[in-house]
Design a binder for these strands. Sequence first.
DNA 1: ACCTGAACACCGTTCAAGT
DNA 2: ACCTGAACACCGTTCAAGT
Lengths: 239, 239
Amino acid sequence: MASMSDRNPFELRDVRSRRGGKVKEPLSRERIIEEALRLLAAEGVEGMSLRRVAIALETGPASLYAYVDDLDSLRALVLDRALAAVETKAATRKSWKAALKLVVTSYTQVLMATPGLAQLALTSIAVGPNSLRIMEAMLDALAKADIDTHSAAWAVDLLLLYAAAISVQHGGQSDETARVLDPIAKAVSAVSQEDFPRISAARAELLSGEGGQRFSWALETLLAGVLRQTKRTAKSHPM
Amino acid sequence: MASMSDRNPFELRDVRSRRGGKVKEPLSRERIIEEALRLLAAEGVEGMSLRRVAIALETGPASLYAYVDDLDSLRALVLDRALAAVETKAATRKSWKAALKLVVTSYTQVLMATPGLAQLALTSIAVGPNSLRIMEAMLDALAKADIDTHSAAWAVDLLLLYAAAISVQHGGQSDETARVLDPIAKAVSAVSQEDFPRISAARAELLSGEGGQRFSWALETLLAGVLRQTKRTAKSHPM
DNA sequence: ACCTGAACACCGTTCAAGT
DNA sequence: ACCTGAACACCGTTCAAGT
């Protein structure tokens, strides 16, 4: 119980600056998302539970429902919060291809940085402001390449999908990843050369998890495909 | 309690043919997987729990651990069991492109047929005999196209990944899918034309969930990209 | 009106105690 | 030796009872 004179009007917004922490800070959607993201980064997707968030925030699990619909919606909120770190601003000054690469690469880096986030991206649907911003930037780049809207929409889908999926596999060199990759290595290595000659021959390539290289290969491949497939609109457009 | 004379030696293998079902059939990995798959198809990924399988098999949850390591491994077993339905045999007689399409299309159809299966494919790692068979068939097709091993391995990854991911989104028109797709539609429709002009313009395309068309577009795109990107080996190869 | 402790209906996994 | 009931340590969500 600090004396009242120590308190100032900013405390409600800048809750972290409170010393002692004896006075319980009011709950807010903001604080819940922040704590959930912290848990996700620290403990993975399984570790981010409503109950744990409630405990960390020193309240009961029921209290969270005043700010969040359910676990699924919390997941969506956490994902979009994390996607705030994805870079889209610098993209506008570059060539369409460089811009697209920049956005997708940034997206992938963000997903890889915190384990579990990529899994979230694959599972829950991202329709928050930040995923909209990312999609907008990608559509903008593709539009500058004179790719028709239809192909562009599908390409965005494909690119984001792949980025998330590859991030699940290569992101976060945690115990989780090791546990997942190990059985693959074992199975592929133990494969019978007679029954699976092609797999045997490609063994090394299938296992080489050089994420970065693989990722840029895939990105180039996808872009090449999009360009090839697409019926470019007439060049009459000024931009 | 049927009389003993009604029993025959096949009963242990053909447990289903037992009439009455009063005598408890012995547990087996086989029966566990089958029941789990049934639950997955009927109730989705959440409905497939060890406890529910145990109840369906009229035993306690602990009994399953004699046949299955844990839930993750059961998931892997169920996935591979389901992948048995994927067609790879007919592929050998066709052109490499037709063969590849056939396998990937069959894979996608299987994943889409039972909701939850695609989600399983994205989450758990498939290293069972059936995923090996599928990978082998795909590598074989790509090898016939003279695509180098490195690109081929990555292409297989990319194709399977995309097939699984698109199956999650479009497979199973269950309540689950509707529940997932609805917020996307809402969010994209409500988007501000000023802030997100590109998204606004591509609204229809982003929402048109014509799965089949979209899928073949993506498949063509990926193949075109793979062909473009890849350094074909010299044509000296006889096949 | 707002908040939340306790309860409800589930989980996966372990282990001691049975046969 | 094999099997499993009961227990343990968790879940998400609801709701009645408090303030």
